[in-house]
Design a protein around this nucleic acid. Structure first.
Lengths: 338, 338
DNA sequence: CTGAAAGCGCTAACAA
DNA sequence: TTGTTAGCGCTTTCAG
């Protein structure tokens, strides 16, 4: 029976409940003798305080809410691992919300803050709307975005425009002119990185004087199979691309599979570059743009923790670097007309 | 301000707090008119009830604790994904505890149940001690083990002895006699699958009349790099194995890397079989023993949910099947003396 | 069907 | 230092 309360302890130790509470909270204002008595009463009764009661009376939940979309996505998982690594040694519990459906997202983003379900919020790969942000500030719960951006909120992210540029530029430097872009839905308001990388892609193209070809850009739901489909279409075009930039490594895997299916060799017939540098990218030797996934989680969690200690008026911004990792899925384009 | 309480609502609606509470909990004992008044007061005030208060007065947390070891382990993540998929559509919050250190484990397993931090507990890949189990039943919180076993607790798992046997048998059928086993620490009391698979390995060997060779078995901390190390040692033995059974796919990847480093071809010079069928195993075409990782999480969570509804006296047991998936890292052993 | 009031177990302010 | 007491915001009898 965990039905023992602070009152039982007080009675047994022959003190008041206040004193027991003080001992529980390591208040210095307790004499060693009293503390001793209380401690042994606690031991004897195998007592431990009720979280619920403590939360109610303190008005704090001692929990941090982590909201992720599509928990099956490897890059999201990796970020979460970073978050977990810092939260698990903190005094906060981590309560995890997975958002798979659009309507879930709305209701969650609205209710979580105002129900005071958590003392702090971490949104991973989820760009909130202005309305959401208003809810957050109304509820006055510190929030940090990981891999997402909003001018009014603390965030840690990478420069996705630069990353997209970097990837495309590399392909161009290898001699490619016909470069496809396989992406997630561009108009998803909750996913700004897709748009940013696309912007970087077009910038690199423009800078090199290569005209953007609409038929070289495909978008669909995120996923390996969808990417495979899209690539199949791209590759069976009358004038197919010689290189493909995939929005994510997961998609790059689909791209490679599609090429193999068509009997094309990667990288000889098709160069492929991904984004994220998930573990699978290493195993499969995929050229990619590395972003510090795990680290982003760590930094986000640490930022949140510090903000919960000492709030700042201005939203904090942490920008992490991206880095090109050249592996075996990209190569020089040898023009057939040599 | 989320400072609006049930009392504000009651006042505005001109009713008592009890009535508001009834509306909040969809009690049928409220007239439609009253309900209407209360509803609009709630809307007007943008009120939502405090979780903490509700938890305290109801004595339930509406949360399920999920305890995982080494959240970086892909198979653990996959199981968790299964758990999340069912919990995220339930009315329970999921609070996640990651246990990386031994002492953390002890304190967690002890305090979580008795502090009533959760209405139910899911232990993933963590075999509790008898003392732990006693705590659980004392605290009277429903618990289910996923990928772990204890006679007194509900659990969902696979038959790891059979799985280990299956893997080894397959290698033997391919003509291999010199079969190494790369594993995690065998004497970790919290990880029974390592021992079980090892048992299956030895059974298959014995059955085929192959003598167990101590030097063909290596153990170290779980991980790709450790596996790589161990394999290096195995492969540079005077009389090296021609096939290796790795305790996990993660380790199988390390095995393959070690082979490649030594200029050995997989599967021509060395057959490798893993266990789990994580995603990377598919990408890398690793022969493996599939166990339904995601599914185990789903089943575990569902079992827990049902147990929380209607407890059973006997511990429930769900046994999931394992299945051999032959891919490209195993092949017939061609004896050099042909 | 509805209101009043008594907790749920703890913390914190106030006295002593 | 320590005990007492008034909440924290909701649920749940118990009357009416």
């Amino acid at each position: 029976m965990s039905k023992t309360t602070i009152r039982d302890v007080a009675k047994r130790a022959g003190v008041g409940v206040g004193t027991v509470s003080r001992v529980l909270n390591n208040s210095p204002a307790v004499s060693e003798t009293t503390r001793g008595k209380v401690q042994s009463a606690i031991e004897a009764l195998n007592f431990s305080p009720s979280l619920a009661a403590r939360r109610l009376s303190r008005g704090k939940t001692m929990a941090i809410g982590v909201i992720v979309p599509f928990f099956t996505n490897p890059s999201v998982v990796r970020r979460l691992q970073g978050i977990v690594s810092v939260l698990s040694v903190s005094k906060y519990d981590l309560v995890l919300f997975d958002i798979e459906k659009v309507n879930q997202r709305d209701s969650f983003l609205r209710t979580i803050p105002q129900r005071k379900m958590a003392d702090g919020l971490l949104l991973v790969s989820l760009t909130p709307t202005d309305a959401d942000v208003e809810q957050f500030s109304l509820a006055n719960v510190p929030t940090v975005l990981v891999d997402a951006y909003h001018p009014a909120l603390n965030h840690v992210r990478v420069d996705n425009i630069a990353g997209g540029y970097q990837a495309t530029k590399y392909l161009i430097e290898l001699g490619h002119h016909k470069i496809g872009y396989i992406s997630d839905y561009l108009d998803d308001p909750f996913n700004s990185p897709v748009r940013d990388r696309f912007t970087g892609y077009k910038q690199a193209l423009a800078e090199a004087g290569i005209e953007f070809r609409a038929e070289y850009h495909c978008e669909d739901r995120h996923g390996r199979f969808q990417a495979q489909q899209m690539t199949h279409n791209l590759l069976t075009l009358p004038d197919p691309p010689t290189a493909i930039f995939a929005y994510s490594d997961t998609q790059a895997i689909g791209v490679i599979e599609a090429a193999q299916e068509l009997g094309l060799s990667v990288p000889d017939d098709l160069s492929v570059i991904g984004f994220d540098n998930i573990e699978a990218a290493e195993y499969l030797h995929i050229t990619t743009i590395r972003q510090a996934l795990f680290e982003s989680g760590v930094q986000g969690a640490e930022l949140l923790l510090s903000l919960m200690q000492t709030p700042t008026s201005e939203p904090q911004e942490i920008l992490l670097p991206t880095e090109l990792i050249a592996r075996h899925t990209t190569t020089q384009y040898i023009n057939g007309t040599f």
